[in-house]
Amino acid sequence: MSEKANGAPPKIQIRGLHKSFGPKVVLDGLDLDVAVGESVVVIGGSGTGKSVLLKCILGLLRPEAGSIKIDGEEVVGLRGGDRDRVMRKFGMLFQNAALFDSLPVWENVAFGLIQGEGMDRDEAKKNAIEKLAAVGLGAEVGELSPAELSGGMRKRVGLARAIAITPEIIFFDEPTTGLDPIMGDVINDLIVKCVRELGASTLSITHDMASARKIAHRVAMLYHGKIIWAGPVAQIDNSANDYVDQFIHGRAEGPIQMQVRAD
């Protein structure tokens, strides 16, 4: 799961990542690689630290220990212009899309182009409408406010915003949560199509196995702060790992004991 055959470093390389909140250890020496052009899906139960992992990579949370390298460059502790430069490689689809309420849809999609790349507003609007079309939304949607959109449309706009800046790496935070199965599958198809067209590396977190099977090249399971199993998506049904088996079949009985009350 690490370096490609040509010796190029992984797009994302994480080693020994530790993150705690008070006494609660969330990430406990996590190791993970994402190769160039690879789509990795991290699965795991609620509260196991999947979102924390993404936030640590994005620099929104600072880990206590460990290394995160993007294209071989250490990014833990990066600030100012260096961080902005690295952040321009990323696109992110948030769980609830996190659209800016105060801006119309087209300006949400064009935000990274206008603010991050200094693109002219008219040109950015044309670009945003193209991206909206790429996720199956018409130009008229661009004039709406995010509050006027359904859950599925919000996800599509979030995806359009994530791909608008032509990122090298895209993160998907529970892309199908809260959607009906059909709309979930539409979003999965859009993710696969957009990622293929961009040639981006992606890291997704989900507990929707249908979504994981559709968008992943490789699946990694997070449990107790560590990746306890990682392998090609085709092997997930034959992982020989009791934790993975219990999770993918959604069984209450097994080695994973759900916490029913706070410690």
Partner: peptide, 9 residues
């Protein structure tokens, strides 16, 4: 967080 990921302080 979305602002941050769009390289906007």
């Amino acid at each position: 967080d979305a602002l941050d990921t769009l390289a906007t302080n």
